[in-house]
Amino acid sequence: MASTSPSNVLEAYYKQFQRDFSIFLNCRAEELVEGGRMVLTCLGRKSDDPSSKEGCYILELLAMVLNEMVLQGIIKDDKLNTFNIPWYTPSPSEVKLQVVTEGSFSIDRLEVFEVNWNTLNNEKTFDSEVEISDGYIVAQGMRVAQGIRAIFESLLVSHFGEAIIEEIFNRFGKILIDRMSKEINKFFFVTISLTRKHNQ
């Protein structure tokens, strides 16, 4: 899923999220006593637009790496064309709608919070030459790359093979370093506190 994805692709990912989240809530409802509470935090977005930068940007940067490696003959074109990442970042309204639709829980509280890709606050203005020479942005870019690697490495290995994984994430880290030296980017998280309803 990307900002350039056609509407039917975005819809397919959303429907899969609805199915998966509904099953998840149903299973948790079976485990909790009536009146029991649960707090969930998931990667999400503030915007209602699923193709917004809030939801897709980090994977679009990873896609740039894979496309570059196709152009250089490192990855076969057909391999890239058959690769999909099961990643959907729901909005608060989508999370709320699914909780209400599934019906096992009442919502106590729902919030969105943001975490910078870098660990300095939002007011910090980067002088890219100074920061990169000091190693700060380099370290931060590689930290984010390793976090994404922890999530997606097994998918990439199973599809492209293990031999090119280091190359993928070295290149990905360099793109992140470049972007983080020029702009402030954030991850968004949706947190929801739920109470198990009493059985009717």
Rank of each mutant, 00 (worst) to 15 (best):
I85C: 09
S104V: 00
S5R: 06
P92H: 10
M69E: 09
I177K: 06
K182G: 01
L25I: 01
P50C: 11
G35P: 09
F189H: 14
L61K: 06
P50S: 12
R28E: 02
Q72R: 14
Y88I: 15
Q72S: 10
A29R: 04
C42R: 13
C27E: 12
T41M: 06
E131C: 04
M142G: 02
G73K: 08
M69Q: 05
E167Q: 08
V39Q: 09
G73N: 09
G36E: 13
D48Y: 04
P6K: 14
W117Q: 04
S47E: 14
N8D: 14
R37P: 06
F105M: 13
F21P: 00
P50Q: 12
R171L: 14
C27V: 10
N121D: 06
A12R: 12
V144G: 03
L155M: 06
Q140Y: 01
S128L: 03
K182C: 01
V112R: 00
E54A: 01
L80D: 07
S22D: 01
T82F: 07
H159C: 07
L194C: 07
L71T: 11
E167C: 07
L110D: 00
E111H: 10
I107G: 04
E162C: 05
E114Q: 09
Y13P: 02
L176H: 01
V130Q: 15
S47F: 05
L80P: 03
C27Y: 01
K186G: 00
K182T: 10
N67G: 14
A145H: 02
M38G: 04
N26L: 07
F169K: 00
K186Y: 00
M69V: 08
V33H: 08
D77H: 12
Y57M: 10
K182I: 02
T125F: 11
S158R: 07
V65G: 03
G141T: 01
S5K: 09
Y57D: 06
S181Y: 04
K186I: 01
S5N: 13
T195L: 03
K124N: 09
A63C: 06
S5T: 03
D108H: 12
T119F: 14
